[in-house]
Every structure is written in structure tokens, then in C-alpha cells.
């Protein structure tokens, strides 16, 4: 048996496990963007972000299985939540935007508020709950439909 090979195999498996665990924990988590950048306003409009709505701006690529799950979750959130829109961009065709907005992986979802500022970003497929929790504070206070 190859001693070096045994060690290398062990290191590879350990490193992969660590990466996988961290990745799984982080996937879909929405991070708040602290310094909204007005410079990207024209770029967001150019990407098709509609004015006056909270937009889930999703960057996808063809080589991306979780992008599909992300599309389903975001489209569903947009359909069921008034004032929320979902825009999907093919990252490969908009490398200019990918660089300007500091996107490194697909799927990345930017949460754009009604004023067109980026309020948060999530890398990896978010859950429905994560998306709804991220857009809720950005929506105008809606009358609650709860029955007394």
C-alpha cells in the first residue's frame, strides 16, 4: 500500500468534509449589506430590476443545479408576496454585472429594496423562510390579515 497515497486520501476527505459542512451551514443565509451603494443603481435597472418593488435578483448559470431550486423558491415568493419581484440573470452573459456586484458563485440572490439599493445577499439556494424573512422588513407595513 502507498503510504503517501493513504495520507493524501485522508487529507482530501477531511478537507472536503470540512468544506461541505461549512458550505451547507452557509447556503442560502442572507447577509445584510451594510453600505448600500448608489453607484450600482443604473446597473440594477439595466439588469431589469423594476422600480418601486423589493426584488430578488438571482444570478444563475447553466452549470448550476441549485439554481433551479433557487428559482422555484424566489418565483414562489414573488408570486405570493405583493410588492416582491423576481429577476433572474444569466451570470455568464453579464460578467460586467458579476464583477461590479462582486458575485463569485451561482446561485447568488441579491435582495434589492424598493429604492433600488442592495439590502442583502445570499449565496447558495435559500429556503422559502429565508427569502421571506429577508424581504419582510423591506416591505411597507401591510395591514395584518389575522383574525381577532
Amino acid at each position: 500500500m502507498d503510504q503517501t497515497g493513504l495520507i493524501v486520501a485522508g487529507v482530501a476527505l477531511l478537507a472536503a468534509t470540512a468544506y461541505g459542512v461549512v458550505h451547507r451551514r452557509r447556503a442560502g443565509r442572507v447577509r445584510a449589506v451594510s453600505a448600500p451603494d448608489d453607484l450600482v443603481l443604473p446597473l440594477l435597472a439595466d439588469l431589469g430590476v423594476p422600480p418601486g418593488q423589493v426584488t430578488l435578483l438571482q444570478f444563475s448559470s447553466a452549470f448550476c443545479a441549485p439554481c433551479r431550486a433557487t428559482r422555484v423558491v424566489c418565483a414562489e415568493a414573488a408570486r405570493t408576496t405583493p410588492g416582491v419581484a423576481h429577476v433572474e440573470v444569466d451570470a455568464e452573459h453579464r460578467l460586467d454585472a458579476v464583477r461590479a456586484l462582486d458575485i463569485w458563485k451561482t446561485p447568488t440572490v441579491l435582495i434589492v429594496d424598493a429604492q433600488g439599493r442592495i439590502a442583502g445577499r445570499a449565496q447558495g439556494a435559500p429556503t422559502r423562510a429565508q427569502v421571506l424573512a429577508a424581504v419582510a422588513p423591506l416591505l411597507p407595513a401591510a395591514p395584518t390579515e389575522e383574525k381577532a
Binding site: 468534509t17 452549470f63 455568464e92 458575485i103 463569485w104 451561482t106
Partner: peptide
């Protein structure tokens, strides 16, 4: 490492790095 990540976590490493590579 890539095959194991796919098998154990359903994570496609090449796909993840693809956009960074294109960038």
C-alpha cells in the same frame, strides 16, 4: 475531494468554481 463532496453533500465543486473561473 470533488467526487466525495458530490456524493456526501450533493455539492458540485466544479459548478461552484465555474463562475469564479469565468470571472
Amino acid at each position: 475531494a470533488a467526487a466525495f463532496l458530490n456524493a456526501a453533500f450533493g455539492l458540485c465543486l466544479g459548478c461552484e468554481l465555474f463562475l469564479a473561473y469565468r470571472r
